[in-house]
Simulated assay, not measured.
Amino acid sequence: MANKLLTGAVMTLALAAGSALAADFPSHKAPPAYIPPPPTWTGFHVGLNAGGAWSASTTTNFVSTPFLINGAGNVPWAAAAAIAGSGGVSTNAASFIGGGQIGYDWQFSGGLLAGVEADIQGVAAGNNNTALTTLAPTPLTAQGLNLLTSVTSSKALDYLGTVRGRLGYLITPTLLAYATGGLAYGGATSTTSFFQTVPNDLPGFLLLGASQGRYAQTRVGWTVGGGLEWMFWPQWSAKIEYLFYDLGSAAYPVAVTADWQLSDLLAANATQARTRFDGHIVRAGGNYHFNWGDPPIVAKY
């Protein structure tokens, strides 16, 4: 009996000593998982973009108007030449557009973001020369006389730039949806060639107009659009964007058509072309963000 009591006492002391030693060892609990701070959008960004552009207004119109008529008998001829010398030609072509942008964003609480961005792109226009040839009646159509009119026209943008505001919402900390709009400017060019005659006119008579008009100028207008931008890596983002731009309309002189009888000028018409420089842009791009906003919050262990 005494041996059993002694054995029990020894075991109790051993367990108590083991518990005391275990309490003295340091804890080995795993540290909390590291959660990276959300990216900050506040700061400057620079990047590149590329995409496609195409015209919204796809017609260049031309109008002939009499400005000199020598006698009532020449009114029908001047009117017939003016009608035949008026119409429209399609001047639509898709273009490649590419360039760069720079901007600054402010990120607010609640996922709101505001910013400004400026960009400029070169435009590699496709060949959009379009020709139109018509044969129209004259006052002497019964005698086989008709007006032959041929018009060739093209238009293009040499470059396009914008200065825009951006207002967006962070759907997630790394995905931004935004609307944008502001000023647009670009180098606009339009060329129209005009030819008009009566191929088999009566002896001693000549109706002829042959010339080319060209318009080239930097124009200023407006733009509006929207897009999505994804911060796929710290300080790096990719975006896709749509813009509509409108640089307004332009008119320019093209040709003068004169109707002669030997050395006498019977009538004269002036032809003018008019077109609009507006269109759509769809482009993709990438930005590098300098992230000069609030410093990220680092978790403490």
Rank of each mutant, 00 (worst) to 15 (best):
S27H: 06
R166G: 02
S153W: 08
G209F: 01
K239V: 01
R283I: 04
L265K: 09
L176D: 04
G285N: 07
S19I: 07
W236A: 02
L13V: 10
Y159V: 05
D278E: 12
T172R: 05
V256W: 00
T275K: 01
A267F: 14
A81N: 13
I97K: 00
R283C: 06
G165S: 07
N70G: 00
P39E: 03
A118P: 01
W230N: 07
P173S: 06
F205C: 00
P173K: 09
T191S: 14
W236G: 01
A78K: 01
L202T: 09
G165A: 14
V256H: 03
G99A: 10
S27D: 15
T152F: 05
Q261N: 14
F25E: 14
V256L: 07
G98A: 14
Y159W: 15
F232H: 06
T40W: 04
W41R: 01
E229H: 03
E241F: 02
F108Y: 15
G248T: 10
Q121H: 12
G182N: 07
L247Q: 04
P26S: 10
V298R: 13
T149V: 13
L247F: 04
G87Y: 05
Q196I: 12
D294E: 11
D294F: 04
A284P: 01
A267K: 03
A16Y: 05
A177G: 15
I97W: 00
T162Y: 04
Q196P: 10
T65C: 01
D259T: 08
T197D: 12
G187L: 05
I102C: 02
L13P: 00
D105R: 06
Y178M: 12
F194V: 04
P173F: 09
N3L: 14
A142W: 00
V198M: 05
Y245H: 08
V75K: 09
D119Y: 05
D264I: 07
L243A: 11
I102D: 02
T138K: 05
A258S: 15
S27K: 10
A50Y: 07
E229I: 06
I35E: 11
L5V: 11
L167A: 14
A188W: 02
A284K: 02
G88W: 04
A184Q: 06
A268R: 03
W292P: 00
T189P: 01
T257G: 01
P76L: 11
E117I: 15
Y252N: 02
S27R: 13
L247M: 08
A188P: 04
A267D: 12
A238M: 12
G51C: 09
S249F: 02
T7Y: 11
V256R: 08
Q196M: 13
F194N: 02
A33Y: 05
G186C: 09
V282C: 02
G286F: 15
L228S: 01
A125G: 12
D201A: 12
A125H: 12
Q217A: 14
V256K: 06
E229F: 03
T7M: 13
A273G: 03
R214L: 09
R219K: 15
L21K: 10
Q121L: 09
P199F: 07
V151K: 11
S57D: 15
L206K: 11
Q272V: 14
